[in-house]
């Protein structure tokens, strides 16, 4: 079942260490951009093009930093993209092995239900809106909870501390306002 915080924290730390030992620090949010690029390029193949030096894109964000995102869009079977797909599979296997997430919880999470009721539509709308703000913010910041907060602070990166300060400064008051009922 759920690990206690000491075992869980140790395991999580070992995963972050294994990543930087064997390959590079963990990051996730860039892959939302890569998947967007893959979908966009599938609809309009003119978006990402190969050049003599590598790849470029009609979109300025995909083309930045020498086209490294454009390259990943052209070759999505790369380390970082597969890493995120593997996270989904790892989450699925782990959840299945502990008996899965129950039907009521899958419909509307407990804490949300205690505060906002049992409407799945309302919950999905909030999750969708939250997803939009999270990924816009993560791309503006250049990383998310994994890349900036965990990997960044672990490396003593100034940017990681800056990000964590912003994230908690907004997240805690928001949660205090939203979740007044405990569940």
């Amino acid at each position: 079942m759920t690990l206690d915080w000491k075992t869980g924290g140790l395991a999580l730390g070992l995963v972050f260490f294994a990543a930087v030992l064997l390959v590079k620090p963990i990051g996730v949010s860039t892959q939302f951009v890569i998947l967007d690029g893959v979908l966009w390029d599938a609809v309009d193949p003119a978006v990402v093009t190969q050049t003599e030096e590598g790849y470029t894109a009609t979109n300025a964000y995909l083309a930045k930093s020498g086209g490294k995102y454009a390259k990943a869009v052209a070759n999505p079977l790369n380390y970082s993209f597969l890493f995120v797909l593997a996270m989904l599979l790892g989450g699925a296997a782990s959840a299945w092995q502990r008996g899965g997430v129950g039907p009521a919880e899958r419909r509307v999470p407990e804490l949300w239900k205690a505060n906002f009721g049992d409407s799945p539509i309302k919950r999905y709308a909030a999750a969708f809106a939250g997803g939009f703000i999270v990924l816009y913010g993560a791309r503006l910041a250049g990383g998310c909870t994994s890349g900036h907060m965990m990997s960044g602070m672990m490396q003593t990166a100034v940017s990681g501390y800056l990000f964590a300060a912003g994230a908690f400064a907004a997240a805690v008051p928001t949660a205090l306002m939203l979740y007044k009922e405990e569940a």
Partner: peptide, 30 residues
């Protein structure tokens, strides 16, 4: 980085997911 962190914080509290954990939760069937 700070402004984006603020935005992510609001969405994280609202949705209960950050980019990585959202992917894991989808795998878990949420």
């Amino acid at each position: 980085v700070f402004v984006g962190g603020l935005m992510l914080g609001v969405g994280w509290a609202l949705a209960g997911y950050c980019p990585g954990t959202g992917v894991v939760a989808a795998g878990a069937g949420r």
